[in-house]
Amino acid sequence: MHLLYTIFIGLIIGAVAKLLMPGRDPGGFIVTILLGIAGSVVAGYIGRALHLYREGQAAGFLASIVGAILLLVAYRAVIGNSESAG
């Protein structure tokens, strides 16, 4: 059940991140979910490194959105560079 909850929250977080950063992105529904889930993981890792979260504590909703936006920026930079090079 935790996996389904994570996927659902990842979808919402990924969609919010894409709404906050409009533009064309390669990838669709699956990439949105993966960005949201990974954004949550990144936010949790950074939060634990900065001692904002305890070990095993999940990142908050806003922190997860910030993490997803950071990943979206990196994703666009990598994909944009590979498309312009080819």
Rank of each mutant, 00 (worst) to 15 (best):
F8I: 12
A43I: 09
A85R: 05
V31I: 13
V73A: 12
V78T: 10
R48D: 07
G86K: 12
L34E: 08
E83R: 06
A17S: 12
M1S: 15
L35T: 00
L3R: 14
A63C: 01
V78R: 02
G86M: 09
R54Q: 07
G14D: 08
R48S: 08
A49R: 13
I46M: 11
P26D: 06
F29E: 07
A17K: 00
G28C: 02
L34V: 10
L71P: 03
G60M: 07
V73W: 13
G60Y: 10
L35P: 02
G56T: 11
M1G: 15
L62M: 14
I37C: 02
R24P: 02
I12E: 02
V78G: 09
V16L: 14
A74E: 05
G44C: 06
I13R: 05
K18W: 02
Y45G: 01
A38T: 09
L3S: 13
A68R: 03
I13Y: 00
S82N: 00
I12M: 15
Y45Q: 14
I30L: 14
P22W: 13
L34C: 04
A15V: 10
V31R: 03
R76A: 06
F29A: 07
I69L: 14
G10P: 05
L34M: 12
V41N: 02
L71A: 08
M1T: 12
I13H: 01
V66S: 09
F29W: 12
A74F: 15
N81T: 05
M1P: 08
E55M: 11
L20Y: 11
Q57Y: 02
P22A: 13
A68T: 08
M21H: 12
V42T: 09
G86E: 11
G60N: 01
A85Q: 04
V42M: 06
I37N: 00
